[in-house]
Design a protein around this nucleic acid. Structure first.
Length: 578
RNA sequence: UGGGGCGUCGUCAAGUGGUAAGACACAGGAUUUUGGUUCCUGCAUUCGGAGGUUCGAAUCCUCCCGCCCCAGCCA
């Protein structure tokens, strides 16, 4: 019996994961076998430049560009910029940077729906000529009333049957700027009684006397999504037009426009958008977080935006891996953010150099270590990567360890330092706690007195003595000082929209999603860390040098990307409940 | 109570009539100079429910239940 084929790994020995199959890949493969589209695969990623890209967009980007990559096809980057009141160049620039950072290349195929405005206008006139579109001068309010409801059919506009020539003339006047905003629209003439509300004479063009970020003041009428998107796909020769589920109802209209115009007709395919626990992924909500100042901007490391994740220290590889692992399907789902974090840790574990840093320092004095002596010790940079080499770290009489690594009265499962207890200082020596110095007023432990065993240099006891814990530490006189920003989930619950009696998702913001620690002692090698560089702070987590922190100030600022898995924390939590 | 979709492990997700993949999470155990990593092991007699067809059903049929989307001159 042959082993079943392992579809999770490429067969080339690189160990790189192969994109798992999904219903869209199945359709594409069937189309290629059938010779549909002459075997071509041509997709597109069509963002509206009205906000920053987020992890949900990454799913779409990986899907569209991934399909093109795996089936010898092409994927266009197309800005769906038909609403000049909301769109800005700042957004197009950020989108381009984010797609590139994620590792995808659209080569010279950078398109804008606004590039098609002339063609779109001609198509609109064609529709009018065919008697399939008309200019309506009902007010927005009236249009709404005429539309009917989910259960009742709509009414036809009194202008619906106005002569073709009259609509044509009106449409040209709309274009010429002879009417004020909102006074006229171009509507498709379909069916006011359609059970699909989108088919009840949808609006195709509206008047907006505002300048567009690309076309300036050339136009004062702008086409709407349903008219623009399908034709843009058609113009670009797209084969598979992939969008999210909420556009399912729009497909009938997509097909109608293309069929009426008799033009090249791509296939629209919908998939479920990404939802993630402990965060929100709707552009509207993200904009609100930024506008109301709940976060520091689009690239706040707590944001699920690509720029936020980048600043947080995420790697593009980990995001791509995540997007492949979550799959593509048609059912609404919410992915556990733990999966994203798992992909991140897996990637960082093999690539981040290890380093020692103390977040909440507790001074330790090694009483039997000579005052002016400095012992240089060799530390391994990355046990997962021998190529990463080693470095030297100084050990002296005065050190810092982590406050939580000492307990005066340790519970049974606490393996770390305690009075009379011996532990290992990583890459250094075994030390034994011989005394505790407390603040006379508060009773707080402010210093530990210890002795070290010179025979354990490097961390091994020649007599085979074992120790139950290894602590990270930093030499006090050599320590560099850093600001460390500890990030946690932005929201306090899995589903921020589960607001209960509260008013909105804003009320479920996690109050401690950011904790800033200053003057953290970190090992001296970190003085030369560069913006964006990633490290594992041993026993704590992965951190990266904040790319936007003021470099000129010489300040070292680290963002915590993600903690290490912490079984001790789990044990404590469990114990706390019992 | 219109139309369009969707319901497989705690969370994602394969499966497309031949007897429930995988991942994350979780729980044990081994190794370990990171309570990290790695490595073993366990984790759906059952596929929203009820009937039916069939030698055989998560896959086909019927009815029912639940959830999502649509009434922007947003995308």
């Amino acid at each position: 019996m042959g082993k079943p084929e392992d579809r999770t790994q490429k067969n080339d020995g690189t160990g790189e994961r192969l994109a798992p199959s999904n219903f869209i890949r199945t359709i594409v493969e069937q189309d290629r076998v059938a010779g549909k589209w002459d075997g071509r695969v041509h997709t597109r990623f069509p963002p509206e430049p009205n906000g920053y890209l987020h992890i949900g967009h990454a799913k779409s980007i990986c899907l569209n560009f991934g399909l093109a990559r795996d089936y010898d096809g092409l994927c266009n980057l197309r800005f769906d910029d038909t609403n000049p009141t909301k769109e800005e160049v700042e957004y197009v620039e950020s989108i381009k940077a984010d797609v590139r950072w994620l590792g995808f290349d659209w080569q010279d195929r950078e398109y804008y729906a606004s590039d098609y405005f002339d063609q779109l206008y001609d198509f609109a006139e064609q529709l009018i000529q065919k008697g399939k579109a008309y200019v309506d001068n009902l007010s927005a309010e009236e249009v709404r009333q005429y539309r009917g409801t989910l259960t009742e059919p709509g009414k036809e506009s009194p202008h619906r049957d106005r002569p073709v020539e009259e609509s044509l003339e009106l449409f040209r006047k709309m274009r010429a700027g002879q009417f004020p905003d909102g006074s006229h629209v171009l509507r498709a003439k379909i069916d006011m009684a359609s059970p699909n509300i989108l088919m009840r004479d949808p609006t195709l063009y509206r008047i907006r006397k505002v300048s567009h970020h690309r076309t300036g003041d050339k136009w004062c009428i702008y086409p709407l999504y349903d008219f623009t998107h399908c034709l843009s796909d058609s113009i670009e020769g797209i084969t598979h037009s992939i969008c999210t589920l909420e556009f399912e109802n729009n497909r009938e209209l997509y097909d109608w426009v293309l069929d009426e115009l008799g033009v090249y007709h791509p296939q629209q395919i919908e998939f479920a958008r990404l939802n993630l626990t402990y965060t929100v992924l709707s552009k509207r909500k993200l904009i609100r977080l930024v506008d109301e100042g709940h976060v520091d901007g689009w690239d706040d490391p707590r944001m699920p935006t690509i720029s936020g994740l980048r600043r947080r220290g995420y790697t593009p590889e980990s995001i791509r891996d995540f997007c492949e692992r979550i799959g593509v399907a048609r059912r609404d789902s919410t992915v556990d953010i733990a999966l994203l974090e798992h992909c991140l840790r897996e990637d960082l574990n093999r690539r981040a150099n290890r380093v020692m840093a103390v977040l909440r320092p507790l001074k330790v004095v090694i009483e039997n270590f000579p005052e002016d002596q400095v012992e240089e010790l060799e530390a391994i940079n990355n046990p997962e990567d021998p190529e990463a080499g080693t470095r030297s770290i100084p050990f002296t009489r005065e050190l810092y360890i982590e406050q939580e690594d000492f307990m005066e009265e340790p519970p049974k499962k606490f393996f770390r330092l305690a009075p009379g207890r011996e532990v290992r200082l990583r890459y250094a020596f075994f030390i034994t706690c011989t005394g505790v110095v407390k603040d006379p007023d508060t009773g707080e432990v402010v210093e530990l007195r210890c002795t070290y065993d010179p025979a354990t240099r490097g961390g091994d006891a020649p007599d085979g003595r074992k120790v139950k814990a290894t602590l990270h530490w930093v030499s006090a006189p050599h320590a560099a000082r850093a600001e460390v920003r500890l990030y946690d989930h932005l929201f306090d619950r899995e589903n921020p929209n589960d607001v209960g009696k509260a008013e909105s998702f804003v009320d479920t913001l996690h109050p401690n999603s950011l904790e800033i620690l200053t003057d953290c002692p970190v090992e001296p090698s970190l003085k030369s860390a560069v913006a964006g560089e990633r490290f594992q702070f041993e026993r704590l987590g992965y951190f990266c040098v904040d790319p936007t922190a003021d470099a000129a100030s010489g300040r070292l600022v680290f963002n915590r990307t993600v903690t290490l898995r912490d079984t001790w924390a789990k044990i404590q939590k469990r114990g706390g409940k019992a």
